[in-house]
Amino acid sequence: MSLPFSPEEFMISKQELELNPSSRVPICLVLDTSYSMNGEPIKELNNGVKLFMEAIRRDDIACASAELSLVTFGGEVKQLFDFGSIHRQTIPHLAVEGVTPMGAAVNHALDLLERRKSMYSDSGVDYFQPWIVIMTDGAPTDDITIAAQRTSELVSNKKLTVFPIGIGPHADMTTLHQFSPKRRPLRLKGLRFVEFFEWLSKSVSAVSQSTPGEKVKTEAVDDWAEL
């Protein structure tokens, strides 16, 4: 994991910010890649992330607006990519490993978002409040108190939208709820990552398109989740 970036990365990022006039929607995916995700779950998760990125790339408006970063927690926290043009990001291959440091991962994601927001502001780029998607199939193995406080505070101040997603029967929904004082965590039906990411990309398009309201107007969730 490396939060600081090199002058090169900074320059590329800066160029993209200056030349692309679209208002941005920064989205950080915070994904559980701990060992318990082994087998079908990680396969489906990889599939879902791939389809998500492809869906955004296909949508002219969404790909000019949506900016992705990807943080995983499995054994340790890894930043697969920082915010930037989705065209130069590689579709990742996620592998499973070790324990579940969810708190550290969310903290890292928030740091990335803060930094991105300040870059927007320093460059004169409009942006909508960021989204964070937290997906886990279990319970954290580190302390999530501070991370949960940070997200809750941001959500209450309308500075962040959190999508907490539980995978399978063992996902700790109580913990997920702590990250999200407003939006209740959703449990994925089976391993329907694809449907979830389809829904997410549609929501991204909705925000980046005609009426980018301050509120996130999301699509119906019947397809993929059970409450």
């Binding site: 994991m1 490396s2 090199s6 926290v77 550290a104 903290n107």
Partner: peptide, 17 residues
């Protein structure tokens, strides 16, 4: 809020200042 990201490991490529 960043100080407790104890798992932080450097890639070695870009040392944090």
């Amino acid at each position: 809020g960043t100080s407790h990201t104890t798992n932080q490991r450097n890639s070695g490529q870009y040392p944090p200042p």
